[in-house]
Simulated scan of single mutants.
Amino acid sequence: MIQGICFDLDGVLIHTDELHYLAWKGLADRLGVPFSREQGDRCRGVSRMQSLEIVLEHAGRAYSQEEKERFAQEKNEAYRAMLEALSPADVPEDVPPTLEELRRRGCRLALASGSKNAGLILARTGLGTYLDAAADGNHITRSKPDPEIFLTAAQMLGLPPERCAAVDDAVAGIQAGRAAGMVTVAIGDSAAHRAGDYDLERFGQLLDLFPGPGKEEGL
């Protein structure tokens, strides 16, 4: 019986991938480094410094650790400036009613995002009001596919990992959820790769999977 659901943020509860891409692209353009959409897609679900390595892979020169940390900070400042403009209107329309219904059915809900900007996003969009706990990049030392973020979220919910489901749009996130011992639910890119125990086309299909305590789980 699944009692808790742990959600990734970007690409699941809200879509800010384009903002990430624009912020990285702005840095790459300033440095004169080629940066493609394909590279941007590869930055999904990995840490900021891992993403920076992807951005710089065609740089044609090496950068010091100090320079890299400065570049990562520059990108994050640009990204956070874009996040300030977010509002509840930016949340996909099926997300709030689905979260409300899952809670009504007795499921405990948590964020499990590696983003250190998750708190700002939750505040700007109002998504935090639907969650019982929020684990983000400020609570962990290891990024997905390491299971730390999902294990932390389960602990915050007061549930064993095997009683939780991990919902993620990145293959690395699904790998992390599986390593944590959770049922994995893929959506978006990870679903296209058939990475999860369940692969969904729409967020609202979670209601078919998790009918609530005392009922048989669907699909």
Score class of each variant (00 low, 15 high):
211 P>Q: 03
163 R>F: 03
106 G>N: 12
206 L>Y: 13
117 N>I: 07
92 P>D: 13
179 A>L: 09
17 D>N: 14
187 I>C: 03
34 P>T: 01
86 L>W: 09
128 G>P: 00
12 V>T: 10
79 Y>E: 05
24 W>R: 08
29 D>N: 13
54 I>R: 01
88 P>M: 12
218 G>I: 02
122 L>E: 11
64 S>M: 05
166 A>E: 13
41 D>F: 02
144 K>R: 14
78 A>M: 15
18 E>Q: 14
217 E>T: 07
213 P>N: 14
173 G>V: 00
184 T>I: 04
200 L>K: 13
17 D>M: 00
115 S>V: 08
64 S>A: 13
132 D>N: 14
124 R>F: 09
66 E>L: 08
82 M>D: 14
217 E>G: 00
121 I>D: 06
132 D>I: 00
188 G>L: 10
153 A>P: 11
92 P>L: 09
204 G>S: 15
71 F>T: 01
108 R>G: 14
153 A>G: 15
34 P>A: 05
81 A>K: 12
150 F>Y: 15
181 G>E: 13
184 T>W: 11
156 M>N: 06
60 G>N: 07
103 R>I: 00
218 G>N: 00
36 S>P: 13
158 G>P: 06
153 A>Q: 09
16 T>R: 03
97 P>E: 09
52 L>N: 14
153 A>M: 10
